[in-house]
């Protein structure tokens, strides 16, 4: 099954290798990985989507925490988070394209339905930009292909995730801004950190 991890990591050279190497070592395939700045200076935010058995999540998360450059790891499920992806799609739309010059207006219509935007118009092609869940992006691609459009290029960012609601305190805690006394020896953890039964049927 797919697991989505959000990791806050140090913004330093080699951090991506360390994270990627961990997944390689555990023999877990990374489906997508996005990295960018977070709300805090010197801290990058990664969203990692990985294909792994259901019971592997705890170990992956615990292992990520063993990397010195990792400050916080959260596993987010579909229901509790907003998960989005950005996609650029280039479609052939010149006179020699499958639907000829008509294709342009049809592509505009499709873009409207899927709430994609036209970001480039060239003599031979149109570029669409779309943000949404992975399934929505796949929906547009499928429609384009089924209608025999010639999809020239696709570039997807991979998923980004953020928990819904108020989780700021948790992030702050992970960043170490909470008084040290409260995190001594056995810091209390929120309920969602309960150890899952790794060997459940």
């Amino acid at each position: 099954m797919l697991h989505t991890f959000v990791a806050l990591v140090d913004d330093k050279p080699g951090v991506l290798t360390r994270v990627a190497s961990l997944f390689r070592r555990l023999s877990v395939n990374i489906v997508s990985l996005t990295v960018g700045e977070s709300e805090r200076e010197g801290v990058s935010r990664m969203t990692i989507v990985a294909e792994a058995p259901e019971n592997a999540a705890h170990r992956i998360r615990a292992s990520l925490y063993k990397l010195e450059i990792v400050r916080s790891v959260d596993e987010v499920g579909r229901s509790e988070a907003v998960i989005r992806e950005l996609c650029l799609i280039k479609v052939a739309a010149g006179p020699n394209a499958p639907h000829g010059l008509h294709s342009r207006s049809q592509i505009f219509e499709l873009a409207t339905v899927f709430r994609a935007r036209v970001v480039d118009l060239a003599p031979e092609s149109i570029m669409l930009e779309m943000t949404g869940s992975a399934s929505k992006i796949e929906g547009l691609l499928q429609v384009l292909r089924e209608a025999s459009y010639d999809v020239l290029e696709v570039s997807r960012t991979g998923r980004m995730a953020m928990r819904r609601g108020h989780h700021t305190s948790r992030v702050l805690k992970a960043l170490g801004t909470q008084p040290a006394a409260a995190t001594a020896h056995f810091p209390s953890r929120p309920d969602e950190d309960d150890l899952p039964n790794q060997f459940a049927e």
């Binding site: 615990a62 992970a174 040290a180 056995f186 953890r189 950190d193």
Partner: peptide, 13 residues
């Protein structure tokens, strides 16, 4: 170095 941060998943409640 900054004070040692124990692994956040330690728990023996």
């Amino acid at each position: 170095p900054a004070p040692y941060r124990p692994h956040p998943m330690l728990r023996a409640e």
